[in-house]
């Protein structure tokens, strides 16, 4: 049946405010004209009432929940049965491609921006099920859905930890200024500043391209590099505490004291310097979990004999003899 826009608006008006006498009269008249009219009104008011019951569904991301569940299911099958596992992983990939196909067919690509301020961290769930944790003062640009062969996101500034969902058909790429990082599915941390890029790999294999047509470096789990942008220099270093901002854990294994100072300075946003006998060859082994700077300094004092002295804004760690 055809109902004109005016009557629809009248019904809508009545539903919002049933106490409006004039509207009630007008509508009662229209409803009384035919059974069809009455039915039409009843159906619209039913939809009106039922639609508000779905409000809670708006607060929940169903697709995210489904992917989460899918990834949390522990393996049940006979571990020796490789064929079954193989079929399982094919099926998982096809589920993922189904989901991305679904995302593709219903939405067009739009770029979204997520920024964090001082002292604020945030996480972004990407359309493919990957998760990116943003440290403070960071900006990430990412598409609402991925519809190209490569899943590309842009880290414009700051620091982020990437947990990338494995998808062999669609490599994942992070672009920072001229440089880029490509992976298939893995986790790694990137810290971008004006003159350098720090890349720490947690799991899997990551390739790093410093600039277009530059030489690609491959990094495995627990490997790390620092790329100095201005001098085009790549320095390999041990991967330590790249993701400490996220895990709140600082781990030092046979770490030179200079490195320890540098990392404590970075993590606690203070200036920490060594003093005393600088010709030492001491190494530090320690594991700090969610400790305050004060606690860390205390532990260093009690276990290693470091004395600390604060002059202006700089904390000096005196190397014990």
């Amino acid at each position: 049946m055809i109902v004109n826009a005016e009557t629809q608006a009248l019904i809508a008006k009545f539903l919002d405010n049933p106490d409006d006498v004039e509207v009630s009269f007008q509508l009662a008249h229209w409803r009384s004209l035919s059974n069809e009219n009455e039915n039409y009104f009843q159906q619209l008011s039913e939809i009106w009432v039922m639609s508000s019951n779905g409000a809670v569904l708006d607060e929940i991301n169903e697709r995210k929940s489904v992917l989460e569940l899918n990834r949390s299911l522990p393996n049940h099958a006979n571990q020796k049965n490789i064929v079954l596992k193989w079929i399982g992983s094919i099926a998982a990939i096809s589920l993922l491609s189904f989901v991305s196909y679904w995302a593709l067919s219903t939405k067009s690509e739009t770029l979204l921006t997520r920024s964090t301020h001082n002292g604020q961290t945030d996480s972004v769930f990407l359309a493919d099920g990957s998760k990116i944790m943003l440290a403070e003062n960071s900006t990430l640009i990412y598409p609402k859905v991925f519809n190209k062969n490569t899943r590309t996101v842009y880290l414009n500034k700051g620091k982020a930890f990437f947990l990338i969902f494995k998808d062999h058909k669609h490599p994942f790429k992070v672009i920072m200024k001229e440089s880029s990082v490509s992976v298939l599915g893995t986790s790694f941390n990137i810290a971008l500043s004006n003159n350098k890029i720090d890349l720490d790999v947690k799991t899997g294999v990551v390739s790093f391209l410093p600039y277009d047509k530059g030489k690609t470096s491959f990094l495995k789990a627990d490997e790390a590099i620092t790329y100095f942008i201005n001098s085009n220099r790549i320095v390999t270093r041990s991967s330590l505490n790249g993701d400490a901002w996220l895990t709140k854990n600082l781990v030092f294994v046979e770490a030179p004291l200079e490195d320890v100072c540098k990392q404590l300075s970075e993590y606690y946003h203070v200036d920490i310097k060594l003093s005393g006998d600088l010709m030492h060859d001491k190494k530090l082994n320690a594991d700090f979990k969610s400790n305050s700077l004060h606690e860390v300094l205390q532990i260093l004092n009690v276990t290693y004999g470091f004395k600390t002295k604060k002059i202006k804004d700089i904390i000096y760690l005196k190397i014990p003899n």
């Binding site: 569940l69 899918n70 079954l84 399982g88």
Partner: peptide
């Protein structure tokens, strides 16, 4: 479940989730 059919189980979850 005992056939480790994670895909079917995931779809089953999806069908009941909302």
């Amino acid at each position: 479940i005992i056939n480790n059919n994670t895909v079917a189980f995931t779809y089953f979850y999806k069908s009941y989730f909302s």
